[in-house]
Structures are given as C-alpha cells and as structure tokens.
Computed example of a mutant assay.
Amino acid sequence: MQELTFVDMMLGSSLFIQFLMLCLLLGSIISWVSIFQRWQLFKQARTAHQEFRERFWSGMELSELFRTTDPHEAEGAERIVFSGYKTFNRIHKQTTDPATILEAVERSMRIAIAEEQDHLHDGLPLLATIGSVSPHIGLFGTVWGIIEAFRSLAVVKQATFAVVAPGMAEALITTALGLFVAIPAVVAYNRYLSSSELLLNHYENFADEFSGILHRSLVARKAD
C-alpha cells in the first residue's frame, strides 16, 4: 500500500478541512509578518534610546540638545523628554512656582509615555489572538475530521486499523497546523511584551531623572 504523505493528506481532506487549513496558513503568514515588524520596531527603539541617553548625559545644554529635534521624528525617551522640555519653557513664562511648573511637565511626560506605550504595544494583541485562536481552530478541524471518519466507517462492512488510520491522520493535521501557527505567535508575544515593559521602565526612569534636573534648576533659580 502506498504511504500517504503530509501533502497527500492535506489535498485529500474535505473542503471544510482545507478551508480551515487555509485560515491557519493565512494566520501563520500574518503572524510572521507581525513578528518581523515588531522585531524591527524594538531594535530601532532600543538603539534610539541608547543614542539619546548618551547625548543627554554628554553635558550638552538642553537648549542645544533639543534645538534641532523634530517632534514628528523623535521617539522614545527623546520624545518624552522633549515634550516635558517644551511644557517647561511654556509654563515657565507664565509662572515661577516650581510645583506648578513640575506638575505640568510631569503631566506632559506621562501623556507622552502613554502614547509610546500604545506604539510599542501596537500589533501585540494580533499576535495574542493568533496564538490563542489557532489551536482551537486546529482542534475544531480535528473533531470535524474524526466525525467524518466515523461516518465513513458506517458504510464499511469490516473496519480495520488500516481503514481507520488514514482518516484519523487527516483529522489530526489541523491540530498540528494549529500548534505550528500558535507556538511562534505566543513566544513572540511574550518576548515583545517583556521588551515593551522594559523599555517603558527605562522611559519612566528617564522622565524621573529629567524632572529631578528641572527641580534642582528651579530651586537654584529661586534661591538666587
């Protein structure tokens, strides 16, 4: 008897099972595209954060540091601190009260951090959805295939393992495909979620350090 290959079982399955396989294939393609895009985004975010941190602590004046900053191109800590610096300059012209100025600066930076969080988390819900739904689609296909296999046995006078095995193997294909799609998506989701939280912690620490610098500057001016 000719041995059934994986491709033969896929092509020989019912139209409904083939439809589920197509859905899983599309899910896998979308998942890998999203994984690659997230990898590029986090790589760029880490590089930008490190470069800005080095420039920030190089001793350069804040006015010089942000003189050529484009708010539309700035990202990460640079965008957060730049937002606070703009607010500082605007509020400082209206009042000299350190508490009022710092409250406005910190509120501006919190908003910027929330926007960065949305940017970093963009695409992660899609990976989570693919990772959680794919095994269920595969299991549904397996249950459907087993039902069809047992229905086909009703018209067979003698049911042997050789007769049952091909149908059962075809039924289990969707479960295997579901796991094949889900595992990379779940691993990538957890990895990128962890990277996102780490970067956000760095951003928050940077914002706190910047607030401390402004506070010391305001106290020194008030003392003078």
Rank of each mutant, 00 (worst) to 15 (best):
V156Y: 13
L172C: 13
P184A: 08
V181N: 13
T160K: 04
A159T: 15
V181E: 12
T174A: 14
T175Q: 08
L177I: 11
V155C: 03
A185G: 01
L177H: 08
I173W: 04
R191A: 08
A165N: 11
P184E: 13
T174I: 10
V164S: 02
A188L: 10
A176D: 12
S152N: 10
R191T: 11
A171C: 07
V164H: 00
A171D: 10
V156M: 06
S152Y: 04
L179P: 05
Y192I: 03
E197D: 09
A171Y: 12
S196G: 04
M168C: 06
T174F: 04
Q158A: 09
S195P: 01
P166N: 14
A162K: 11
I183T: 00
I173R: 03
A154D: 02
K157A: 10
V164A: 06
A171T: 10
M168Y: 12
V155G: 00
L177P: 08
V186Q: 01
F180D: 00
T175F: 03
A165F: 07
E170F: 00
V156K: 11
V181I: 09
A182T: 06
T160A: 09
G178N: 01
Y189G: 00
F161T: 09
A169D: 09
E170N: 06
A176R: 12
E197M: 15
P166Y: 13
A165Q: 14
S196V: 02
V163Q: 11
M168T: 07
S152A: 13
S195K: 08
T175R: 05
S194L: 07
S194Y: 10
G178D: 03
A165R: 13
E170I: 07
N190V: 03
A154C: 00
